[in-house]
Design a protein around this nucleic acid. Structure first.
Lengths: 143, 143
DNA sequence: TAATTAATGCAATTTTGTTGCATTAATGAT
DNA sequence: ATCATTAATGCAACAAAATTGCATTAATTA
């Protein structure tokens, strides 16, 4: 991808354009899957752990990335779609977690949210849906 | 609750009845919400961190508790319904995460899972649904 | 280009997760 | 009830992940 697109994203979210941010952004765009802090550390070895940590957090705060719930105790992050802003996130898409290889990825199809009743005086803001299963790569008996 | 009920749960899952397990179980039953290892450590100070850690894991393995996906990088656990066994879990209910206080709780209403298409050769096993919002306690403007 | 403000790297610390091993306790058979 | 067996516990130690403070460097604005 051209450098300009990544720069556009940063500008749009009022973030200063730095090498680290451009590289992190590129990594997310290329990988098309949820990444953890460790994934970044292993790949972007030019940058300090703390810098990557703070880059992730500034991306979360500004709405470039979103946190994806995970039950393994390690936070993971996915890139937001263009429609996201710091105030309004639209992640009504499914995340798929492979129970074999652990990889977490976004399924780019918007879905109809299920109907559910919340207790009195509870207010919903967003919904995360994680489908656990076996991905194509790990499937022992593909169709 | 009577001690016998907790003992029943342990027996049903072929777990030895120990003080720690009874106390952890009682804590989960009383709190009615998802708890982290830290929650246990802060409350059940009589027991070693490692003991609580292993108690959680034995409960997960035997189907007394289930892990709840969380986006803060800290694993949290919820008590399973009576219908759960080590082999077959039925958690087609919603978890509610308060974006203000961070509390995670089970909404005890089973729901209709949403329809979604997975990529070719992907196989779904289970679905987690987390509703993020504001709980009654944190709601600044209740109805 | 200078002044301002934010990002980075390093050191250090805290928190959380995990393993090995000796000791203690719970269970099942006698 | 007691003993043998097997599992649970506590302690020490370690590993991994998250977090903070501060001096330095770089990006933006005027």
């Amino acid at each position: 991808m051209e450098a300009t697109k990544r720069q556009e994203i940063l500008k749009k979210h009022s973030l200063r354009i730095t090498d680290c941010r451009l590289d992190v952004l590129e990594f997310f765009i290329n990988q098309k899957r949820a990444l953890s802090q460790k994934d970044l550390e292993d790949t972007l070895t030019d940058y300090d752990r703390v810098t990557l940590y703070r880059t992730l957090h500034s991306f979360i705060d500004s709405g470039v990335l979103h946190k994806i719930p995970n039950d393994n105790g390690i936070a993971s992050y996915g890139i937001c779609f263009d429609t996201c802003s710091p105030d309004s996130h639209q992640h009504d898409h499914v995340h798929f977690k492979c129970t074999t290889c652990g990889q977490l990825e976004c399924i780019e199809e918007h879905i109809q949210l299920p109907a559910f009743k919340l207790p009195k005086d509870y207010r919903a803001q967003s919904v995360d849906i994680i489908v656990n299963g076996i991905c194509q790569k790990c499937d022992p008996a593909p169709n």
